[in-house]
């Protein structure tokens, strides 16, 4: 007996619970790494069996900044670079919620770089997922603080000559308690990392190396999105606990991936409560959230 196609079609998309289906199709290009990264977040949330009413996503501006608009969660699309301080306010008002910042390298590392390092320093209980495609994609492929030396972009047409940031080193040295890097190819490992990051109390940072075939790959003649995935396959080296000084990414170099940092440290709110007790003794009541209001 042959099966009719209709019998195999599922009425519900498997991720429907987590996506705003009324906003699909999304704006991302074919072969963009964001699709798999969002899938990894959705899978992580499902596997953690969290009450989705208590999860919020905050994004900044850019291609990755659009993630907040596609997740069926309380979600905030804020200003360029300011997703982290917005998320900080939200977290302090409602420490019972899981607040996830999902944004890109230009947003979080360039214009929002100061907020990243200070929020990591304070060890605010946020999960930051930073999609690094080595370029400003939304605006047409300009050089980023992550663009490897010699890579071409719309504003480094003869090849970039600035030193890029090493994001895991930056996050860890600023105070993050969980730091991992995977590529958009490593969907299962990335999902595990996101799960660990969400569960970890304190500032967690997950870098996701993701293909931008429309701009980064085209400007550098690296082939299609699939070619980039093959490149990640052949050139990613799993190095859990690596010396972070050695995880720089050079142009088309090997990419060190893995879980680099996973340590325990009191969170911002823990420290605030400790400070309150130190100063006021029993008169101080541990902070448990804002005025509620709703």
């Amino acid at each position: 007996m042959s099966v009719k196609v209709e019998e195999l079609v599922r009425e519900e998309h498997p991720m429907e619970k987590l996506l705003r289906m009324d906003r699909i199709p999304h704006i991302w290009c074919p072969t963009c790494g964001l699709g798999t990264t969002v899938t990894a977040l959705a899978a992580a949330l499902e596997q953690l069996e969290l009450d989705l009413d208590n999860v919020a996503v905050v994004s900044g501006i850019g291609c990755t900044g659009r993630v907040a608009g596609y997740m069926k969660l309380d979600s905030f699309h804020t200003t360029h670079g300011r997703a982290i301080p917005f998320a900080l306010g939200l977290h302090i008002a409602r420490p019972d919620l899981k607040v996830i910042v999902f944004s890109g390298d230009g947003d979080l590392i360039s214009i929002g770089g100061n907020h990243l390092i200070h929020t990591a320093r304070r060890n605010v209980d946020l999960t930051v997922i930073c999609v690094n495609n080595f370029i400003y994609a939304m605006t047409g492929g300009q050089v980023a603080p992550t663009t490897p030396i010699t890579a071409r972009s719309a504003t480094s047409p003869y090849g970039n000559y600035e030193h890029p940031f090493n994001l895991p080193l930056l996050a860890a040295s600023s105070g993050a308690v969980y730091v991992a890097r995977w590529t958009a190819l490593h969907v299962r490992r990335l999902t595990t990392a996101i799960k660990e990051a969400i569960t970890k109390p304190g500032f967690s940072f997950v870098e996701v190396i993701a293909p931008c075939s429309t701009l980064y790959a085209r400007l550098n003649k690296l082939g299609s999105g699939l070619d980039l995935m093959k490149f990640y396959h052949d050139n990613s080296v799993i190095r859990h606990g690596a010396d972070l000084k050695e995880v720089d990414i050079d142009y088309q170099s090997k990419i060190a991936v893995g879980k680099f940092i996973d340590i325990e440290k009191p969170t911002y709110i823990d420290c605030m409560n400790e400070g309150g007790k130190r100063a006021f003794g029993d008169k101080y009541k541990p902070y448990g959230g804002g005025n509620g209001g709703n």
């Binding site: 905030f76 804020t78 300011r82 301080p85 917005f86 306010g89 939200l90 709703n294």
Partner: peptide, 18 residues
């Protein structure tokens, strides 16, 4: 860390109901 963050943080906390 700066006034950009100050203003962004109070918007986030206001949406948190505070």
């Amino acid at each position: 860390e700066d006034e950009l963050a100050s203003m962004a943080s109070i918007l986030g906390s206001s949406w948190g109901g505070v």
